[in-house]
Design a protein around this nucleic acid. Sequence first.
DNA 1: TAAAAGTCTTAAACTAGTTCATTTTTTTTC
DNA 2: GAAAAAAAATGAACTAGTTTAAGACTTTTA
Lengths: 197, 197
Amino acid sequence: MNHKESHTLILNNISRFIDLTELEKQKYISLLTEIKVQKKDFLLQAGEIVKYEYFITKGCLKVYTLDEDGAPHISMFAIEDYWTGDLSSFMTKEPSKYYIKATEHSELLGISRANYDLLFQEIPKFERFYRILYQKSLISYIRRSNHGISLTAEERYIEFKKKYSQTVNRITQKDLAAYIGITPEFMSKIITKVNRM
Amino acid sequence: MNHKESHTLILNNISRFIDLTELEKQKYISLLTEIKVQKKDFLLQAGEIVKYEYFITKGCLKVYTLDEDGAPHISMFAIEDYWTGDLSSFMTKEPSKYYIKATEHSELLGISRANYDLLFQEIPKFERFYRILYQKSLISYIRRSNHGISLTAEERYIEFKKKYSQTVNRITQKDLAAYIGITPEFMSKIITKVNRM
DNA sequence: TAAAAGTCTTAAACTAGTTCATTTTTTTTC
DNA sequence: GAAAAAAAATGAACTAGTTTAAGACTTTTA
């Protein structure tokens, strides 16, 4: 994917919530860093202090933690036109508990913490952009934390498939199990059962 | 609680993230509505379109949905100095799926949707306030949706008790069970077990 | 302040989901 | 394109959490 295409993608994403002048667009683009990661490479490993917030222009990545037993718990799959990172470490500058690993060759645009802070001074409209972006994310995480607790694994799988039909075919069953919160064995059983219905 | 006390409480909450002039403070306060709810009364019922976002100056409320079997799933307990409501219905103007019920006599300050929109025009600094407020909430809900899936009920209980030690004594075990995502019977077992340790 | 309603506890039988072990299928790598 | 590695499927024995039921305790209400 060339520069122009990835810049169009991120600017279109931003224009959902705010309008930028040509000059502001140029200024914004100048604050971004291009990053490429090969399949299976890490964008982030636990213990590191998070340097960037990322926008994905191409590819797919998984964001996860490891529990005391070393078992992964995936908190999101990030694909094209999505934002990802670890907001907590990015903001507090404390070591992250997350890993971010590419499940496909991926291309991203990153904004550093210094440029993120600068952005609000230079183009205050971005306060609005992030206000709305975080508001929408918050709404979906509130729903998700409720559903995670109140639905059965089978219901969570059916909901995921409905909501993220583009993503479900790009990830392994094992990773899906780590997202849904069950073992790969039980995931296999559920999929067999649901497909039979 | 008198007007002055509740205004001081909300202005202090806001001053965590932005500084307001005296004039801005007055303007902001003028956009708020005072609401009182008796114990067991509803601030919101499913099917209604959410009119306000709320700041609690006194009391305790539970925010919950009912599943197809009529079982409640509590998504948060809101006490003094917390914000609550249903952001989804407030923003989309679609009917809410949530109930909000006072578990104690409670006093709140509400901002209507019209005034919320007006606020950003009149005092653009509030974009920043809400950007930071939502960012912080988002960070804690991301963590929570991960933990809800990866921890056992006992671990979730221990974590809740540690994090919300002031709240845990103000709510019933039954409501706590509906928050943790288990039956009251199993909640009882866990509490007996944890206290024995 | 009695009685009604709601909450908490305990226990036995049950189910959703785990663990462990083995085989088959698919993907990766040289 | 063969060998190695990883993912998926299957099944049996297990555990965390549910269901149902009944009795004890606490709070609310008339």
